[in-house]
């Protein structure tokens, strides 16, 4: 893996472990998807290598769409490891709760714009949560964790992506989930255009009705 001077585990997530390391005089993140003992080896290897190969490609695509992501330095498919730029920033998850209302709404609109840019460019993030968004000191937002993403311009994929954003807001920021999601949709519509955004929003409603036990479905019948 070349010159890794120091290596500290900074996050042991469900999907991967993140290490902060010194690599060729640079602060980097080493992201390794370790084998998951619970699933069969052949399935596990397939999933880990697919996601490791796929993530950098999507991050690159995101950049093309005008969405900031950490720069990729190296990819080791064999041991499911990616070396990427370390972003000095704070998770949006930690910021959202302590912000004044106005700033919070502006941030949500900004997030919506970023999602709009991704979707317009045919990139689906696949795991939109406020933990996967980092804000640096200048207020620039970076999206990370594209491992579950895909290239798609389908309405269904876009709808699920936004549905996940909504779900994340509801479970983690329930106090202001609604105003936040409305902000996200405003930003999203501004980038994607009212017409297209409307179709996606209608799709979100449909996706949620598909799930079990949603009150709206009964009202509709």
């Amino acid at each position: 893996m070349g010159e890794v001077a120091s290596k500290t585990l900074i996050k042991k997530g469900a999907e991967a472990s993140l290490y902060l390391a010194d690599w060729h005089c640079r602060k980097v993140i080493i992201k390794t998807r370790f084998p998951k003992k619970y699933r069969p080896v052949e399935l596990d290897e397939k999933i880990r290598s697919y996601r490791t190969m796929h993530e950098p490609l999507l991050m690159h695509e995101a950049k093309k769409a005008g969405v900031s992501t950490p720069t990729i330095f190296l990819v080791y498919p064999k041991n499911a490891t990616i070396i990427m730029e370390f972003i000095e920033g704070t998770q949006v998850k930690q910021l959202l709760g302590s912000m004044p209302k106005k700033e919070r709404q502006e941030l949500c609109v900004k997030i919506g714009e970023l999602i709009g840019k991704l979707h317009k460019h045919g990139v689906i993030h696949g795991d939109l949560t406020t933990s996967n968004m980092l804000m640096n000191a200048e207020g620039k937002i970076f999206l990370v964790d594209f491992g579950l993403g895909e290239k798609s311009a389908e309405l269904e994929a876009r709808g699920v992506d936004l549905h996940l954003m909504k779900r994340a807001l509801q479970s983690t920021h329930y106090q202001f989930a609604q105003e936040c999601f409305e902000g996200v949709l405003r930003g999203y519509s501004a980038v994607l255009g009212e017409e297209e955004a409307k179709e996606v929003i209608a799709k979100i409603v449909e996706i949620e009705r598909r799930g079990r036990y949603v009150s709206e479905r009964k009202e509709e019948q």
Binding site: K12, G13, A14, R39, L43, T172
Partner: peptide, 18 residues
């Protein structure tokens, strides 16, 4: 079973880490 259970286990692990 392996596919379905791996999927629910993966999302449970995500929630646990989160």
């Amino acid at each position: 079973q392996e596919h379905a259970f791996s999927m629910v286990t993966e999302v449970t692990e995500r929630a646990l880490a989160h």
